[in-house]
Amino acid sequence: MSSTPKARPATAPVVFTANRLRDGRVVWLGAEGSWVEALAAARVFPPEAAAEGLALAKQGERQQQVVGVYGVEIRHLAGAPVPLKFRERLRAAGPSIAAEPAGWRLAS
């Protein structure tokens, strides 16, 4: 279902992602074990430190903060991390289609 660094050793820089337990939103492992909503604020681990990053991220599961931790390989584009895989780019950016009826946000 999701790519894990366990499946094969990372060959590119890695960030860690999960869904927040309470509301399910996509979050990224940021500085000092925090979980942040913006991929740009995610902590980037070099491939050789992927295992260390995963261990840190798994703490978030144990502390009931997040669910379904896994690593995402990225490259840097104009200084910002961009996932290599389409699925992960979509997950970072949100649905590619209108995710609410026209005018919904204005009305709410």
């Binding site: 309470r22 009931q64 669910v67």
Partner: peptide, 25 residues
């Protein structure tokens, strides 16, 4: 939410109540 059920144990229970954890929510 209190951590008394692991996600592994909770998942089938929430699924039987129609609750999935999807890509974004």
């Amino acid at each position: 939410l209190r951590g008394e059920l692991t996600e592994d144990e909770f998942k089938p229970l929430r699924l039987m109540n129609g609750l999935y954890l999807q890509l974004h929510a």
